[in-house]
Structure formats: structure tokens, C-alpha cells
Simulated assay, not measured.
Amino acid sequence: MHGPASPGWLLVALCAATGAYCLLRMRSTVEEQRRAAGGEALMGFGMAAMAVPTAAFTPPVWAWPAYAAVFGAAALRALWAARTDAHHLHHLVGTSAMVYMAAAMAASPAGAHVHGGSASGVPLLTGVLLLYFTGYVLLSGVRLLPAPGTAGPAGAGAATRAGAGAGPAVAWGDRPELARACRLSMGIGMLAMLLTM
């Protein structure tokens, strides 16, 4: 999981900043935002902790089973929540990927990098997760693009006028494009972590 120090620290910073923003989203007045933000904050901070370069800190032996237990519980919660909201299926895949990476780190020799080269089917699972998160990142990136007709000075002016006179402004923590950018950055982080397996 742990690659070179500089990219590792960039990944730690990205995931920690994403987790911090998700904590702020938990203060939202919108119930759906609060529910989603808690799981995303856990993912962000968990990914940040998992990405710390081994040159700076080598986790104790018990840390990887603890990661697997925490994210296993989060996966069960996401599975339960997916009964009523399909968005939680993505949380289920993400938390399951964290369990998989934690189990792979627990099974690897101390201080060794995880590479999915065994004959036990591990490369297949890594490949499936890489395909899923690549598709997710691409789709999330496309969703962040402005819709046709809203870009440019005329669209920006209309949006400003609508925001100024159409009622109360949306709090910055409740803005859907910021939540999408948060999810996109976590998807990119997950891709980076899976690539080192």
C-alpha cells in the first residue's frame, strides 16, 4: 500500500482534507447530507491513515485487523442502508475495498509492499476494484462539468441573480457539487491505493 514518500504524503493530504470537509458536511441541516457525510468522513480519514508512508510510520501488527473490523462494520451498515438508497451501494464497494486492502496488508510480511501477484485470485479482485473505481472517477468527473447553457458570463449572471433573489442561499456545506468533488477525490485516492497493491 505504501509507495514513495512524496506521492504518499500527497495522498494523505488529499484524503485527510476530504475527510475534514465531510465532517463539516455532517453539520448540515439536510438529513441526507448528514447521513452520507459520516461514512465519507470515515473513508477519508481511514484512507489517509492507510496511505501514510512506512518510512514515517509502520503500523503495529494489530492495526490491519482493526482496520478490517472497522470497515467491515461500515460495509454492513452500507449494505443495510442500500435497501432504501442505491447510493449506499457505492459506500458498500468502498468499505469492502478497504477491508480487502487491510486484509492484504495484514497478510503481507512486515514492512513489505502489497503486490497482487499470487495465484489465489487476488489480482482478479484488485482488477475488478480498479475497473470499478476508474469508471466511478470518470463518471464523477463528467458530473462535475457544467451543464450546457449554464457556462459563460450569461449563465453565471443568471445563477448569481437567481441566488440573490430566489430565496435563501444554499450553505457551502450543502452544495451538491462540493459533495461530488469530495467523492471524486476519494475515488482518485482509492485508485491510487489499489494501484500499489
Rank of each mutant, 00 (worst) to 15 (best):
M1F: 00
P4L: 09
P7H: 06
W9L: 15
W9A: 06
L10S: 11
L11F: 06
L11H: 04
L14S: 12
A16K: 01
G19N: 02
C22I: 00
L24A: 15
T29Q: 13
T29P: 05
V30M: 12
R35Y: 04
A37Q: 02
A37R: 00
G38E: 04
G39W: 05
E40K: 01
E40W: 14
A41L: 03
L42H: 04
M43P: 01
F45R: 01
G46E: 04
M50W: 05
M50K: 01
A51R: 00
A55T: 14
A55F: 13
F57R: 11
T58R: 13
P59T: 10
P65G: 09
A68I: 04
A69C: 10
A69K: 06
F71E: 02
F71C: 04
A73C: 12
A74S: 11
L79C: 12
W80R: 15
W80K: 13
W80Y: 14
R83L: 08
R83D: 05
D85A: 11
L89W: 10
H91I: 06
H91C: 05
L92I: 07
G94I: 03
S96F: 09
A97W: 01
V99P: 02
M101N: 06
M101S: 00
A103V: 12
A103I: 10
A103H: 07
A107S: 15
A107T: 11
P109N: 12
G116E: 03
G117H: 15
S120C: 08
G121P: 01
P123I: 02
L124C: 09
L125I: 14
T126S: 13
V128I: 15
V128E: 00
V128A: 09
L129V: 12
F133R: 01
L138N: 06
L138D: 06
S140K: 05
V142G: 08
V142F: 14
L144S: 03
L145P: 07
P146D: 09
A147W: 14
P153R: 09
T160Y: 13
T160I: 08
R161S: 11
A166T: 07
A166Q: 15
V170C: 09
W172H: 08
W172P: 06
P176M: 13
E177C: 08
L178V: 09
A179Q: 12
A181I: 05
R183S: 06
S185W: 00
L195W: 06
L195D: 07
T196C: 09
M197C: 09
